[in-house]
Computed example of a mutant assay.
Amino acid sequence: MKDFIDLKDKRVLVTAGTKGTGAATVDLFRQLGAAVITTARSQPADMPASQFIAADLTSEEGCKTVADTVRERLGGLDIIVHMLGGSSAPGGGFQSLTEDHWRKELDLNLFPAVRLDRLLLPDMIAQCQGVVIHVSSIQRLMPLPEATTAYAAAKAALSTYSKSLSKEVSPKGVRVLRVSPGWIMTDASVHLAERLAKEAGTDVEGGKRLIMDSLGGIPIGRPSSPEDVASLIAFLASDRAATITGVEYVIDGGTVPTV
């Protein structure tokens, strides 16, 4: 059916929606009829000011700015997609991680969702409907000790928080879900593949293979595209998923080897 998913007139906030999977999600939601505002530290030249909020979501002040501006422009929200995440921690195992590294991973991957939910969910509860989607990572299930310990721990905390939140607010009309991607083929991952290829004396395809091997392989033979992940998020945010809450959807090409 042509209109299997319809987000017409839904009011949506997508964090970190200017690049990669965030941008793909923003684009798809708008194609499906939603009014979408996104946020990042810097505004892209091609994005209208009315659709963007410049803010640093690793701070309490930045989260408050976003919440206040969303209410002013949209009058409230129907859907929140917490896309913001990433890692700047160095490799080298647990001993290479300082207090500052740990704090930055939590400030980027956990606290923005906690703060924005605290500010925005009361309005959803008051209107007796809403959807909150926390984008986690399969790293919470299979961390790489050399490089992703702090990131994986932060995403695990996000997942546990999300589950608890769902149990509290689902009876009040607000669905809360998690989407956990594996490796996604974004510009950033291409740059990583190029760097690894250079270090290993191979080509970019060889660099991609190194990444897949580090994950234990991807059974379908390729990473997900940003559009793949955006499509899953759009379905879960739609009324087609009206009875789905409190669960996690892994989209990783079969990377996670366990049930």
Rank of each mutant, 00 (worst) to 15 (best):
K2S: 11
L13P: 04
T15A: 11
T15I: 08
T18N: 09
G20F: 06
G20K: 02
A23L: 13
A24E: 02
F29A: 11
Q31N: 11
G33P: 10
A34N: 09
Q43Y: 03
P44E: 05
A45G: 13
D46G: 05
M47T: 13
I53V: 15
A54R: 05
A55E: 11
S59K: 15
E61H: 11
T65V: 15
V66I: 13
V66T: 10
V66C: 12
D68C: 12
E72L: 14
R73C: 11
R73N: 13
L77D: 02
L77G: 04
D78L: 03
I79H: 02
I79R: 01
H82T: 02
G86N: 05
P90D: 01
P90E: 01
T98H: 08
K104G: 07
F111E: 04
P112F: 09
A113Y: 03
R118K: 15
L120F: 13
D123A: 15
D123M: 08
I125R: 14
Q127G: 11
G130K: 06
H134D: 09
V135N: 04
S137I: 01
L141Y: 02
P143K: 03
P143E: 07
P145C: 01
A154P: 09
A154K: 02
K155W: 10
A157L: 04
L158Q: 04
S159W: 00
Y161K: 13
Y161C: 05
S162N: 11
L165E: 03
S170E: 11
P171G: 06
P171N: 06
G173Q: 12
V174C: 00
R178S: 00
M185W: 10
A188W: 07
E194V: 01
R195W: 00
L196R: 13
L196Q: 11
A197R: 12
K198W: 06
K198Q: 15
V204L: 15
G207D: 02
I211Q: 07
D213L: 07
L215I: 09
L215F: 13
G216F: 08
I218Y: 06
I218F: 04
I220E: 08
G221E: 09
P223A: 04
V229Y: 03
I233P: 00
A237H: 06
D239L: 06
A241S: 09
I244K: 05
T245A: 07
Y249M: 10
T258Q: 10
